[in-house]
Design a protein around this nucleic acid. Structure first.
Lengths: 210, 210
DNA sequence: CGTCAGATGTTCACAGTGTCCACAACGGCT
DNA sequence: AGCCGTTGTGGACACTGTGAACATCTGACG
């Protein structure tokens, strides 16, 4: 007499499923598109079910942001391991370059996720899950790369303080301008070239004059 | 016998009033806070009245963004006229510095408006109203300053291409990081110092080595 | 093995938002 | 005076986030 047993009960991984749905929404539509009800709809669950796993709509957005931040870190690491360096100094430079290149690439290839990561940046930055395979957050990857440059004797110690903020500002700003700023209509080639130029400038501003 | 004559009819400047209300909302709450119904409520008019002047909620937001962009330009101009320069070369440098300092100051002092201006950046950038007193948009102010540096012999012509994007990226990125990024909790003093350091780096990266 | 508490999902409900449509008032035109 | 386009109103709808009460499942404990 009882109806068919509900398949939605005890989903088992509702939280992950909702985050996945949210990530997909963010990927295609940015932070604005990650709407709680739509995520539950995609998972096939009632809207309020989400409230058993997230206190808030914002909590869901934050969880999506954490995933996005982790993917950013992964993208940076992937770019770092692209060209195996030879020589300690070259390796240190390549690691910084990888940080910047990965950042820019992620912003171009996944603008929705990129924006989502930074829409909740302050609340996500130090989440233990917002890390890449190496266990480092994007900021830590940058910091590590800069420390490596100091160790290699390429970055004068007196220029080390706040260097991450200067470098980060540059790539972050360019990313924003490329995503929906005045540079949004640039071709991929020009955008790549501009990214390269920008990274050159950053290095020029930081590294010890040869 | 007819009811009291309506004061809301033929408002005369409803569009401006709605934009003003929207600006106030954006100022205190950022782009998210500029909600159409609240703006009409503040003006004392029915919600649908807005649709006689804006096709869309987004159109209202865009109008607010234009005002914000104009205020950004004004802030930059104000900073430029702060310290009267002596000597052509120093004047050229001061103009670039003013561009960057004004940008950073506006982002710190009016984060809501700053974010609103860039929330709709692509649709606002070339609006004729998004200008300061000099009639120049923020980007044009920067371009002009850089051209001035070339004329003054301080910026090597081969480094001129894309220089605005490099410079803009730096200040824009720092602004974002200061507003709701990992630098949001910085004291004003530290933020100012960091801004100064960043502008130093930008200049160092651009200008001809002495 | 039966029962009961807590976890998890559902339904109902409400306020708030953007937006559409039909209507009303005003004011300048002929 | 009379008409018509402009501007504002009222009501309605779909959608969102969110709270409260209810239902169902599951694991722990007797």
């Amino acid at each position: 007499m009882a109806g068919p047993p509900r398949t939605t009960y005890r989903h088992g991984a509702l939280r992950e499923a909702l985050v996945d749905a949210g990530v997909e929404l963010a990927r295609t539509g940015g932070p604005q598109a990650v709407v709680l009800r739509e995520a539950t709809r995609r998972v096939g669950v009632s809207a309020n079910a989400a409230y058993r796993h997230f206190s808030d709509h914002r909590a869901l957005l934050r969880a999506v942001g954490v995933v996005a931040m982790a993917q950013l870190a992964a993208c940076m690491e992937q770019e770092q391991s692209r060209t195996p360096p030879r020589g300690a100094a070259a390796a240190a430079r390549a690691r910084l370059r990888g940080v910047g290149a990965g950042y820019l690439r992620f912003a171009r290839e996944q603008p929705g996720l990129f924006l989502t990561a930074f829409a909740v940046n302050a609340e996500v930055a130090d989440d233990p899950a917002a890390r890449g395979d190496s266990g480092l957050s994007p900021l830590e990857l940058l910091t590590t790369a800069l420390d490596g440059l100091v160790d290699a004797g390429l970055l004068p110690p007196q220029r080390r303080p706040d260097a991450e903020m200067v470098a980060w500002s540059a790539v972050h700003g360019l990313s924003m301008l490329l995503i929906d700023g005045p540079l949004a209509s640039l071709s991929d080639e020009h955008a790549d070239a501009l990214g390269s130029t920008l990274l050159d400038h950053v290095e020029a501003g930081l590294l010890r004059a040869p």
